[in-house]
């Protein structure tokens, strides 16, 4: 898949919750081939002069309209500056990067598990799975109701099961506590695809590990280049240190030293 570096034009920047922004940009005349789970390296000028790009999951892509979307958690100066961009502003983007979720291993009934902003790549994933004839089911967890993101949008695509740490929405507890993960219910799924905080992904993997179902996780690490040259983002695997950016970010949990 060809990679691009381009100044993409911001179409809209919408706060979808406190600390979370949905940013839509135009890819203009570029026709990228994008797999769900891939990411982009974003950069804009920040007040503190941040040097490095920020790796952000591709949330959605509409190839006909040439619209690329990012769901971004405003954490530090760089992500805040990116989310302050207004329609017409340019976003310096290197994309699409990394390997996405393996659609060919998803099966007929994949379970998509998202924690917090980890739901971001699952939108394009759900859409593409559905267009391939699969019937995905979503399980989303967050600290509290206000951090559950785009539930209505996902609910229009497929069933969504919810947990919150404080019980403000859905079941009280972690996403891995949902009844979906009981051995009897889990066996009805063809695969599990997860994106979220590492402890949450480990908890999900622990529930799945005793079954024969493959569990794919999208790892998040600090990165510099995003294209496999700096070797800063490695994770320890059965094959030694592998790069999250180009060997991942999606890994089968069996290959990780978890």
């Amino acid at each position: 898949m060809t990679k691009y570096r381009a100044d993409l034009t911001v179409l809209s920047s919408t706060d979808v919750a406190q600390d979370f922004t949905l940013l839509r940009v135009s890819t203009h005349d570029i026709d990228p081939v994008i797999a769900p789970g891939q990411f982009a390296e974003l950069r804009t000028v920040t007040p503190t002069g941040n040097l490095l790009r920020r790796p952000i999951s591709i949330h959605d892509y509409d190839p006909k309209a040439h619209v690329l979307s990012f769901l971004i958690r405003r954490v530090g100066d760089a992500t805040k500056a990116i989310c302050r961009l207004r329609p017409g502003d340019k976003l310096d983007t290197v994309f699409p990067l990394g390997n996405g979720f393996p659609l060919d291993k998803a099966g007929n009934r994949p379970l998509l598990v998202g924690g917090g902003v980890g739901v971001a790549p699952l939108m394009l994933l759900a859409k593409q799975l559905i267009s391939c004839g699969a019937s995905p089911v979503c399980a989303f967890g967050a600290k509290t109701e206000s951090e559950l993101l785009l539930i209505d949008e996902f609910s229009r695509l497929c069933p969504v099961h919810i947990s919150t740490d404080d019980g403000s929405k859905g079941i009280k507890g972690f996403v891995s506590d949902l009844p979906l993960f009981s051995p009897s219910e889990l066996s009805s799924f063809s695969s599990v695809m997860v994106c979220g905080p590492t402890p949450m992904m480990k908890a999900v993997n622990n529930r799945v590990a005793s079954s024969s179902i493959d569990c794919f996780v999208s790892l998040e690490t600090m990165m510099a280049c995003g294209i496999g040259v700096c070797l800063c983002c490695v994770t320890d695997t059965q094959e030694g240190n592998l790069r999250v950016c180009t060997d991942g970010p999606v890994f089968n949990t069996k290959s990780l030293k978890w």
Binding site: N50, M222, V234
Partner: peptide, 8 residues
Amino acid sequence: APRMAETP
């Protein structure tokens, strides 16, 4: 890891 830190 971690092998990288952004600095001024």
